[in-house]
Design a protein around this nucleic acid. Structure first.
Lengths: 330, 330
DNA sequence: GGAAATTATGTAAACGTTTTCATTTTTGAT
DNA sequence: ATCAAAAATGAAAACGTTTACATAATTTCC
């Protein structure tokens, strides 16, 4: 090292004001020459902060989450933090493992996209780390939330169908207990009632947010006799499945049936016909969630309560007026 | 603490054999009661290993990479490591920042999916961390590689078209300097020659691996007069773009044109018609890459050279025999 | 020019582990 | 019972920082 104490080096780096101009230069020169890089582990040990945020997500390969991650990563790096990803597949064991990341100081906070507190969080409730929920609000406790107004989005979607003249609209739900499923269903029912239509339980089917789930829902509907003229799907993947099933059965969209999704994933504009949907500002959600997270971690004043970002109805080719004649199918 | 020295606790945890049955039980009881969790930062500081692997990728939201990440994450957690993600957007500055993660001991190694060494790697060449390249081989240096035989995959794709009877096959490339572009092009040309067809430079167009890029390539082709009867696209996204452009112009696939992609991303089976493509075992690539990485990090003997996983031709609906009559379009 | 105030630097403790080495306890053979 | 060998434990150093405190150097002001 070049002529100065180890404490001074630390100060030269972190509190340049506290150190004389000349010595600071000497220090910087030495750093440049030796290629010195501070040992982050020692820093973390001393400062009790790892400058890492853990994102827990059920499935990284899901385009929807991937886009949120993009937003999370962007503001994390901008503010000098790193992003750790935890792919949980909703496995309690995995969740519990990742939860220990904060207890062991590997991460300073957790952004949850799983819709529930990680397994094992109950026991340690008192010393829970900073947590923010993105996309899926968390029922238990009062975890800060960043996302959209799902009920409002669903209402917009269904109102759009009603305005086109549809009177029988099916709702293809996600998993029954999922909060997104229920909120969007509430919006669906509200829009129906506001349009003077009645809610027919036979037109409400559980799915699982997957393409295959959408497909199956259509098959189940066709087995019964009461058909809708339009489908409101709780997410785009299922809407795509519906589109596929319909086209396979030889129907035309939007001629025979209208289909609307939720999320506006990138591929939505590439289906045949392109999918009408409710767009969520995914990247913004990620950015807002990470901003809130880091504010909490750094002890900045963070306003309590949820951050609700606006959704947008994207009208493409999969919705249109229903046929005049009521379809009767064998 | 319950009756025993701090050193013994450490041993009870990491070397249970070195500690007496009875004391081990006491220690475990105390751990359970206090909810003790070891401080990972102190462990890393002491052991000089953070048990973290950094994955550098140009774009997490790209389905292709997201699936690789899934594989990486799976074996990382299985072996007690965490996955850090670095979204670089090919920005040298960002790459350089992430490179310091290993120098500062935040990560033990780097899995590169960027196709090139991170910016700044040249200067520190001597003390480069363990690196493995996934998907895109790295030209400079001799970085262990895990991926597929792109040339072979391309050859398989184009041979499939040739066997269907196509004599004029266009190649929609990725960015010109990209290694995937050039390897797949080599396979394309080889298959052509092996089928007794000649390579027409007018049928080779640069794209950018995006849907829009595929679309534009079609437009550019239609401006000229020499049309192909089939399109081999360097990835599925561009193939989807081609499909879209073709359908927009009113053509039928595979009636008027055949289209084949590369990768087999999840949506490939959802296009109209479903896309014929070359499947890469993405998850396996991720798993193999992480396995190699951790073996390197842990000093296990790792066989040098590349791990090449097999690709598979997935025949769906977008390829068929060409029309007998040569199309002449205005 | 000297005391007081200010600024710059150095010293050393602390963060929580792991591990070497030394010491104590146990075991087993005589 | 005794002693040697083996097994279990403890003491303390080390990992590389940051920071409170003490000290040294500089400036300011009369």
């Amino acid at each position: 090292m070049a002529g100065v104490s180890i404490a001074t080096v630390s100060r030269a780096i972190h509190h340049p004001g506290k150190v004389a101009e000349t010595t600071r230069k000497k220090v910087n020169a030495a750093i440049a020459k030796t290629g010195f890089t501070a040992n982050a582990m020692a820093q973390s040990l001393r400062s009790k902060s790892s400058k890492m945020i853990l994102a827990m997500v059920p499935d990284i390969s899901n385009t929807f989450f991937a886009n949120i991650l993009l937003g999370l990563e962007a503001v994390a790096t901008r503010r000098g933090y790193g992003l750790l990803i935890g792919n949980t597949e909703n496995d309690p064991q995995t969740e519990a493992t990742y939860l220990t990341y904060t207890r062991s100081n590997k991460a300073d906070g957790i952004v949850l996209m799983t819709g529930h507190l990680p397994f094992g969080a109950a026991e340690v409730r008192q010393h829970l780390p900073p947590i923010v929920a993105a996309c899926e609000e968390i029922a238990e406790g009062s975890v800060p939330f960043v996302g959209v107004d799902n009920q409002h989005g669903a209402r917009t979607a269904v109102r759009h169908l009603a305005e086109l003249g549809h009177r029988r609209v099916a709702y293809i739900s996600g998993p029954p207990n999922n909060i997104l499923s229920t909120e969007r269903r509430a919006g669906y029912e509200l829009a129906l009632r506001q349009s003077g239509l009645e809610v027919d339980p036979a037109l409400i089917l559980d799915g699982d947010f997957s393409i295959e789930g959408g497909r199956l829902a259509v098959e189940r509907l066709f087995i019964r006799d009461a058909l809708p003229t339009a489908f409101f799907c709780a997410n785009d993947d299922m809407a795509i499945g519906v589109l596929l099933a319909l086209s396979q059965r030889g129907y035309n969209v939007p001629g025979d049936f209208s289909v609307i999704g939720f999320d506006d994933i990138p591929f939505s504009s590439c289906t045949t016909p392109p999918l009408t949907t409710i767009r969520q500002p995914r990247r913004l959600i990620g950015e807002a969630a990470m901003t809130k997270m880091l504010d909490m971690v750094e002890g900045k004043p963070v306003k309590a309560g949820a951050v609700i970002l606006p959704v947008e109805l994207i009208i493409r080719g999969s919705t249109g007026a229903p046929r005049e004649i009521d379809l009767r199918l064998d």
